[in-house]
Simulated scan of single mutants.
Amino acid sequence: MNDEQPAEITEEPRGCLFALSQPPLMFFLTFIATLILVTAVHDLYRW
């Protein structure tokens, strides 16, 4: 009995850059960053 898995099944671990490459995460982070930027500008320059 050989307990090793074939090379096709094993996956190498994915890091943070793989997570950041996902479009839904980038849309979410862009939305949050935009909200923070708008509130910062609003606090600095009260019209």
Rank of each mutant, 00 (worst) to 15 (best):
L25K: 01
F31M: 15
P6M: 04
I36H: 04
M26P: 03
L20Q: 05
I9Q: 12
F27R: 11
A40N: 14
L29V: 03
P6T: 08
L35Y: 03
D43S: 15
Y45K: 14
F28K: 08
S21Q: 05
T39L: 13
E11A: 04
E4L: 09
L44K: 12
A33E: 05
I32F: 05
P24A: 05
H42I: 11
I32T: 08
T39D: 13
E11L: 06
Q5T: 07
P6N: 08
E4C: 07
H42D: 13
A19F: 10
Q22R: 10
S21V: 02
F18K: 07
V41T: 12
R14N: 02
A33G: 09
L20H: 04
F31W: 11
W47F: 12
D43M: 14
V38N: 06
D43L: 13
P6C: 04
F31Q: 09
Y45G: 11
D3P: 10
F27D: 13
Y45R: 14
I9C: 09
Q22E: 11
D43C: 15
G15P: 00
I32R: 03
D3A: 11
P23T: 06
E11F: 02
M1N: 10
Q5G: 04
A40E: 12
L29M: 04
L35W: 03
I32Y: 02
T39K: 10
H42L: 13
R14Y: 01
Q5P: 02
E8P: 01
M1K: 12
E8G: 06
T10V: 08
L25N: 02
F31V: 14
E11T: 07
G15C: 01
A19Y: 13
F18E: 10
P6R: 04
T10Q: 00
S21G: 08
L20F: 07
L17P: 03
F18N: 09
V41A: 10
V41Y: 08
L37I: 09
A19R: 12
T10K: 02
P23Y: 01
G15H: 00
T39P: 04
L29I: 02
N2R: 06
H42G: 13
A19V: 14
H42T: 12
Q22T: 11
G15E: 00
E8M: 06
A33P: 02
F27N: 14
F31A: 15
F27C: 15
G15N: 00
A40L: 15
M1L: 15
L20R: 03
N2L: 07
L20W: 06
W47P: 14
M1W: 12
P24C: 01
F31L: 15
P13G: 01
S21N: 06
E8C: 07
L29E: 00
E12Q: 05
C16A: 11
S21W: 01
M1R: 12
Q5M: 07
M26I: 10
V38F: 09
P23Q: 03
C16R: 09
E4G: 07
I36W: 05
D3M: 11
Q5F: 05
T10N: 00
W47C: 14
P24D: 05
L37E: 04
W47H: 12
W47S: 15
P23W: 02
G15Q: 00
A40D: 13
Y45Q: 15
D3Q: 10
T39Y: 12
